[in-house]
């Protein structure tokens, strides 16, 4: 049986752990609010961009000589995966679920005889994928969205993707991230960036309308498509940021509650032991007195 002193030390240490987890929970909650606001504020741009693009892409898709970002390379051999993770851990299953999905995809693609290239965003993704997929990783980014995701960061990654595409380094590009549903649930999502896949449900209201274009469709598409990749990435980064904070908040909330339960159990144990010790001492005194 542990001594009274041991129990006191345990209780104290669990209490300080609880203080830390509950502070982390508070921080995550406030960051989550900020991340959610940022994600919401960015929505109008993405929506409108998508609407424009869908109305354009619908007309251009079938035509020969369509933009390569729209038509693809005509091959499906080299897959480029962007794996978005966080820089910091202690966020529950956040990184694990993304990486599990990424690994499954990698295995699947390799089994089909495809080549896989990976760009990781976030320290966690880099560290973990490096263990078993190091030869596929071609680049890693860390400290993205450290002080809130900025569009420039998304654009920088997008430009890298475009440069690789122009150099013929890959055929299909997919980004894997966590879509934010609520603080409790985040859904691992794979979004195909290249070639551009128009959303099926997009813009029924403008589908029949005839737009005028200035300059012509092709010129606009040439500008719109690269920009769209940056926007999609930006959206993914924002969603991922919100998911990370949500997952962390939930995880830390659980940890705080578990610590509370542990403290209760230990306290009960402590009190019992204390009483037992008192009883024992009394018995010793009484039996000593009786012996006289």
């Amino acid at each position: 049986m542990p001594s009274l002193k041991d129990l006191r030390t345990r209780i104290r240490s669990v209490k300080s752990t609880q203080k830390i987890t509950s502070a982390m929970k508070m921080v995550a909650a406030s960051r989550l609010r900020r991340a959610q606001e940022a994600a919401e504020a960015a929505r109008p741009y993405a929506e409108r961009m998508n609407r424009m693009l869908s109305s354009l892409a619908g007309r251009m898709a079938g035509q020969p000589g369509a933009h390569p970002l729209l038509a693809g390379t005509g091959k499906d051999d080299v897959h480029f995966l962007l794996v978005l993770t966080s820089d910091r851990g202690l966020a529950g299953g956040f990184n694990a679920s993304i990486l599990r999905d990424a690994r499954r995809r990698i295995r699947e693609l390799l089994r089909q005889g495809k080549t896989v290239k990976i760009l990781t965003v976030g320290r966690k993704g880099r560290d973990i994928l490096r263990r078993d997929n190091a030869r596929h990783i071609i680049e890693s980014r860390t400290d993205v969205g450290r002080r809130g995701v900025r569009f420039a960061e998304a654009r920088e990654i997008a430009e890298r993707v475009l440069a690789l595409y122009e150099a013929g380094e890959f055929d299909v590009c997919t980004v894997i991230y966590n879509r934010f549903k609520s603080a409790m649930t985040q859904v691992v999502t794979a979004l195909q960036l290249v070639p551009f896949a128009p959303e099926a449900a997009a813009a029924p209201d403008v589908a029949g309308a005839v737009y005028e274009f200035e300059p012509d469709e092709e010129e606009i598409l040439k500008k719109l498509l690269p920009n769209n990749i940056a926007v999609q990435l930006f959206t993914a980064l924002l969603e991922n940021g919100a998911s990370e904070q949500g997952a962390r908040m939930t995880a830390m909330d659980n940890a705080t509650r578990n610590a509370g339960e542990m403290i209760d159990r230990l306290t009960v144990n402590y009190n019992r032991t204390r009483q037992a010790v008192i009883t024992k001492e009394l018995i010793e005194i009484i039996s000593g007195a009786e012996a006289l």
Partner: peptide, 27 residues
């Protein structure tokens, strides 16, 4: 008239006219 940047909606208001610098001339 709506003015949107990637980060947020900057402006949304009803106006009488806007002149936008299009790549092939203002409109």
């Amino acid at each position: 008239f709506e003015l949107v940047s990637p980060e947020k909606l900057l402006l949304s208001e009803a106006v009488d006219m806007v002149v936008v610098p299009g790549s092939e001339g203002n409109f």
